[in-house]
Simulated assay, not measured.
Amino acid sequence: MGPFDWLPRAPLEPLQLDWLNGVELAVLRLDRIDPLISGNKWFKLTEHLAQARDAGASGIISLGGAYSNHLHALAAAGKRFDFPTVGLLRGHAQDTPTVLDLKAFGMQLHWLGYGGYRARHEPGFWLPWHEQYPHLYPVPEGGGGLAGALGCGVLVEQARAQLGNLGWADYDAWWLAAGTGTTLAGLVLAEAGAHPVYGAMAVPDDHGVAQNVSDLVQGGYELLEASRSGFAKVDPVLLDFIERTEQACGMPLEPLYTGKALLALKQQIEAGRFAAGTRLIFLHTGGLQGRRGFNA
C-alpha cells in the first residue's frame, strides 16, 4: 500500500455571528479539503494507513454504520489510491446514500446485524475476518485509537500557520465536536499543554468518549455535554439554529456533530464562559455527506 503523501490543507476562516458577544472565532474548514475524502476522517486514517503499509497489508478492513463518515472516506480513499477496502456494517442491509457510495467506490460490505456489531470489542472478534481477509489491515471503528489521534496532530500546525491571515498572534483554545474523542485527543497531544481543547460531546456518556480520551491523554482538555439527549437526536431548536447559522454565514453544518458543537458554543458564550476578546478555533470536522440520509 501507498505511499500516501497526500496532505490536504484546510483553510482557517473568520466567522462572524451576532451571538459571539466579542469572542473572536475562526473555523478550520476540514469540510473543504476534498469533495469525497472530507473532514477529519482522512487525518485519522493517515497513521493507520502507514501502519498497514509497514505491515505489508494490501488494504483495509474497518467498521461503521449505514451513514458512516469514516467508511465513506475510507472507501473513497481506497478507490483513489487503488487499495481494496472491506466494511463491516452495523444492522441489516439497506441502501442509504452513504452505502450506495461505498458500493460505487468498490468497498466489499458485510452486514453484521446489531448483536454482531456489538461484539466488535470482544476478544477474538477479528479472528474470522483475518482468516477471510488475511492481507487486510484492521482499523478500529471511526479510525480511532492512538494512531487515529496522532494523525490529527497536523491540524494544529495547519491552524497556527494561518493565524497571520486573521491578524492573530495567538489563540486561546480549540472547540470541536467529540464523537469518539480521537480527534480531540490528537489536538491535545499536538498542543502539549499550550492551549486547552474543548470537546462538545455529540453522543451520550455511555458511548465511552471520556474513557477513550483518558486512555490517550492526561489533562489539557474538557468535555461538555452536547448530545441533546442522544446520538443522532435532533430537535427544532437545533434545526432552527443550523438554518439560521447557514443563512448568516454560509457555512454548511450537519445536525449530528458540527451543528450540535456550534450550538453548545453559543450556549457557553451566552452563559459567560468566554469573555469578549477570547480567540477560539472551531474545528469543522466535515461529515456533510451524512446530511443526505438525514434530509431523506
Rank of each mutant, 00 (worst) to 15 (best):
Y117N: 05
Y117M: 10
R118N: 09
A119Y: 04
A119G: 02
A119N: 08
A119S: 13
R120Q: 14
R120T: 06
R120K: 15
H121Y: 11
H121L: 11
E122Y: 07
E122D: 14
P123E: 12
G124E: 10
G124F: 05
G124K: 06
G124C: 08
G124R: 10
W126G: 06
W126F: 11
L127V: 15
L127D: 15
P128G: 13
W129M: 12
W129V: 12
Y133W: 15
H135G: 04
L136N: 03
L136M: 05
L136G: 02
L136P: 02
Y137Q: 04
Y137N: 05
Y137W: 10
P138L: 07
V139K: 02
V139F: 01
E141W: 05
E141F: 03
E141H: 06
G143S: 08
G144P: 05
G145I: 13
G145P: 04
L146Q: 14
L146W: 09
L146C: 03
L146G: 05
G148F: 02
G148Y: 06
A149H: 09
L150M: 13
L150E: 11
L150G: 04
L150I: 12
L150C: 14
C152R: 02
G153N: 04
V154D: 11
V156G: 01
V156P: 00
Q158C: 01
Q158I: 03
A159S: 07
R160Y: 03
A161L: 06
L163K: 04
L163M: 09
G164D: 14
N165C: 12
L166K: 10
G167F: 09
W168A: 04
W168E: 08
A169C: 05
A169H: 11
D170I: 03
D170T: 10
A173E: 01
L176M: 14
L176S: 06
A177N: 02
A178R: 00
A178P: 00
G179A: 07
T180W: 02
T180N: 03
T180C: 01
T182Y: 07
T183D: 03
T183S: 14
A185S: 15
A185W: 08
A185N: 08
G186V: 04
L189Y: 09
L189V: 05
L189W: 09
A190C: 09
A190D: 02
E191C: 08
E191P: 00
A192D: 13
A192W: 02
G193Q: 11
A194H: 09
H195N: 08
H195Q: 14
H195W: 05
V197H: 00
V197G: 00
G199R: 03
A200M: 11
A200G: 09
M201L: 10
M201T: 07
A202W: 02
A202L: 04
A202Q: 00
P204C: 09
D205P: 01
D205A: 15
D206E: 14
D206I: 01
H207G: 00
V209L: 03
A210E: 12
Q211Y: 01
Q211F: 04
Q211M: 07
Q211N: 11
Q211L: 13
N212A: 15
V213I: 14
V213W: 06
S214A: 15
D215H: 15
D215F: 04
L216P: 07
V217E: 11
V217M: 09
V217Y: 11
Q218H: 14
G219R: 14
G219I: 12
G219V: 10
E222K: 13
E222I: 03
E222Y: 07
E222L: 10
L223D: 08
L223N: 10
L224Q: 10
E225A: 15
E225M: 09
